[in-house]
């Protein structure tokens, strides 16, 4: 890739950005790279879409289009059970983490108290920690907690929807907080002062001014939490009990054994699901920018 200036070459004198815009040759290279990246990002997904409608039992051999594998999917009780679990876990963890994450964001951005930096650091860790490490942490924690519960209260708890939800909340709080905080930072603090100046109590100021204004951020955070919860594999597989696998964990198990047309169909279902969520959050962020 040659970015070198060929100073002898004639340069058009028209565009005022001719100096910052790269030369035509370089521009072409950049554009080429961009289209290759887009192809790289989209072709695999596209291929999966196409193959999911292939009638043949062998994935790589195209015979004719059909909905055969989708029909197989919606009658597969294992798939449906896993889907149900996924939805339950995603719902619980999204609701709880949205409330807790928003509160954490408000607390850190709108107040000053000692120990805040430590809290801040603790809040960021779940975002950057590799999922394998987090999975180990959750597994050992619940093993210890169950031991303790059994010994002290005689309660026997097991891995299942509960442990999965608790684990998902643990990382989702942080993601929600990041998104909500970005929104709070962009909020003019004098708006809240104005509310107080206009006789609003703290609660009224929050309810009537702060909350409506950070609502797009809260919704964005909730959508992110929903997406992450629906996609999570590693942590979930560590803390899932028998009969409580989620859809990604179930698919992961299948995938490790090989490629099948049924997986293609389930994959497309999951992709469409997450893309709908992306679109929703993009619409939200557009609204965020206009208000």
């Amino acid at each position: 890739m040659s970015l070198t200036d060929t100073s002898g070459a004639s340069r058009p004198l028209v565009a005022d950005d001719s100096v910052i815009r790269p030369k035509r040759g370089v521009e072409r290279l950049l554009a080429g790279n961009a289209w290759l990246v887009f192809a790289f990002l989209y072709l695999p997904i596209l291929l999966l879409f196409v193959l999911s409608f292939n009638d043949n039992r062998v994935v790589g051999v195209w015979t004719e289009p059909s909905l055969r594998w989708y029909r197989a999917m919606i009658t597969d009780s294992a798939v449906l059970g896993a889907l149900r679990n996924s939805i339950v876990v995603a719902f619980i963890s999204t609701v709880v983490s949205t409330i807790l994450g928003t509160a954490a964001g408000l607390s850190l951005e709108r107040f000053r108290y000692r120990g805040q930096r430590t809290y801040d650091g603790l809040l960021y860790l779940p975002v950057i920690i590799p999922d394998v490490t987090m999975a180990v942490m959750m597994l050992l924690f619940f093993v210890q907690a169950f031991d303790l519960l059994g010994a002290m209260l005689g309660v026997s708890a097991t891995f299942g929807i509960g442990t999965i939800s608790l684990s998902h909340i643990a990382f989702n709080i942080s993601f929600v907080a990041v998104v909500v905080r970005a929104r709070i930072v962009g909020l003019d603090p004098s708006l809240e002062e104005a509310a107080a100046d206009l006789y609003a109590s703290r609660w009224q100021a929050f309810r009537r001014v702060t909350l409506p204004l950070i609502a797009p951020g809260v919704a964005g955070g909730a959508l992110l939490a929903l997406t992450l919860s629906l996609d999570e594999v590693v942590i979930t597989s560590f803390v899932a009990g028998p009969g409580s696998t989620t859809l990604p964990v179930y698919v992961f198990g299948l995938v490790r054994r090989g490629v099948t047309p049924l997986i293609n169909a389930v994959s497309v279902l999951m992709l469409v699901g997450s893309m709908l969520l992306v679109l929703a959050s993009l619409l939200l962020s557009r609204q965020r920018n206009t208000t």
């Binding site: 003019d188 004098s190 708006l191 002062e193 104005a194 509310a195 100046d197 409506p212 204004l213 208000t291």
Partner: peptide, 14 residues
């Protein structure tokens, strides 16, 4: 019993 006109106006955008 006072009210303020803010530099940024601080009008509620919503």
């Amino acid at each position: 019993p006072v009210n303020t006109v803010f530099q940024s106006y601080a009008l509620f955008p919503h």
